[in-house]
Design a protein around this nucleic acid. Structure first.
Lengths: 249, 249
DNA sequence: CTGTTCTTCAAACGCTCGTTTGAAACTTTC
DNA sequence: GAAAGTTTCAAACGAGCGTTTGAAGAACAG
């Protein structure tokens, strides 16, 4: 008969150690690059423990991400509810970004040191593995859809199409930056010694995103990117494309 | 003795077929997810051909990316030279983005159909594999540094630190969007039937990026993201961080 | 045609991967 | 303390990986 343990059983300790090691290693190497042998040896448990306690690699990573992200998205939606209930107007872009960022920062502060939550978040969105992509889409798609609707109300001047793209741009800037791959090296000389300050990072990101979201919609009938040799054709192609686009409301 | 072939030799054909298959598969599966067996069977050549003609998997992908990216960065720098020589003032953000985007679009149009160059570009920047990261940093770092300097002149109101971050945000939005993983599904309902139009995409991206780059610098002495229980401490940490930052010129 | 060089090919090597197995070790229950 | 259940452990499995090998085939020179 299965009994609920009053203190943390050794089995629970094993589960915790595995999840913790998986988090740390996923941060650095991604899903494909993190082998179960790496996880189990790093957690100092037996190789078979992952399959015994979680059922497999996919399920381990699902459990690892769900533990963090469920709380994150719940807090985000709660804050969104708050803003939508309290405001006399619909929530502004600033408020929506706050509803997205503040819970993430809070969780990042509350999480044990040496395991930065925001990089985990970024990596999860960047990672190309189908397992993670499916998980994010299925499990957190609805929450993101609610934010999308809220942004649509905050930015009524944008067509739905335009808005979708801008949120995509926003997600890209966010995830890419949070993931903090060594892409730093490309731009170079960002925070050489200091360890990363998540709050500072999000504070820098916020005005960039707000300005981007609120930018005027693009104009489609000039020749900005036309090639030299095909000016006329390119113009034709552009305007026909523009016609099929639906432009702006 | 090695003779220069007047027509494409069968060996050259093999090389071409391998590179073409590698491009197509890398687009979908990334570096780690693209096995040589997948490449060679897709190109209908022998498994050993990759090691014979290129020397190994790493070298194959380096050759594949270099073939496209060398031309791209050369064209970008040429256009940058043009703008810097012709203008009475330093090139604007718009011009710099044009110098970045226009060669990419031209190459995308010139490349054979069915192998979209811009997704390749995005994937290369997103991919977590150390091989590609090192390649991009070493081979194209200098070119990016020149653009960084140009952006610094176009945006003199930003501190070097702030500028680095904004370029990082820009790269994130760009790479993430171009890569076009199924992250679309998260935001949902982007171009359901239509195949992607690269020019339209970059036209949408441009105003977003320009507005973001030109946004006012963030203010660091309010409590926007302070947690409820640690208002005072958070404020202290923020101001000390602000002091060590170098702020604005 | 002969000999040399370049290219292809099937087979195998050594390795790592996720997963399975079955017997030990440990807990809990009666 | 014996029995039942739970958790660990070392070992192995089968599959896929990048790479190597050596012989067979093709292309070309003299």
């Amino acid at each position: 008969m299965l009994m609920p343990p009053k203190t943390a059983s050794s089995a629970d300790q094993t589960r915790q150690r595995i999840i913790h090691a998986a988090e740390r290693l996923f941060l650095e190497h991604g899903f494909d690059g993190t082998s179960l042998r790496l996880v189990t040896s790093s957690a100092r448990v037996n190789l078979g423990a992952v399959n015994y306690h979680f059922g497999g690699k996919d399920a381990l990573f699902e459990a690892m991400l769900a533990r963090r992200f469920d709380a994150l998205h719940a807090a985000r939606l709660l804050l969104l509810d708050e803003y939508q209930a309290a405001a006399q107007q619909v929530p502004s872009c600033e408020q929506l970004l706050t509803a997205l960022f503040k819970p993430a920062l809070t969780l990042a502060r509350e999480s044990e040191p040496g395991c930065d939550f925001l990089r985990l978040l970024g990596r999860a969105y960047i990672d190309p593995s189908p397992v993670l992509r499916r998980l994010l889409a299925e499990r957190y798609g609805p929450a993101i859809a609610r934010f999308k609707d809220a942004f649509a109300e905050a930015l009524p001047q944008l067509s739905r199409q335009e808005l979708s793209w801008r949120l995509h741009f926003m997600l890209g800037a966010l995830a890419y930056t949070l993931a903090g791959t060594d892409a730093w090296k490309l731009i170079s000389a960002i925070q050489p010694d200091h360890q990363r300050d998540d709050e500072l990072l999000l504070r820098r990101l916020t005005p960039f995103l707000i300005a981007g979201l609120q930018a005027p919609a693009p104009i489609f009938d000039d020749d900005l990117y036309a090639t030299k040799r095909t000016v006329a054709t390119s113009h034709d192609a552009t305007s026909s494309r523009n016609a099929s686009d639906g432009a702006m409301p």
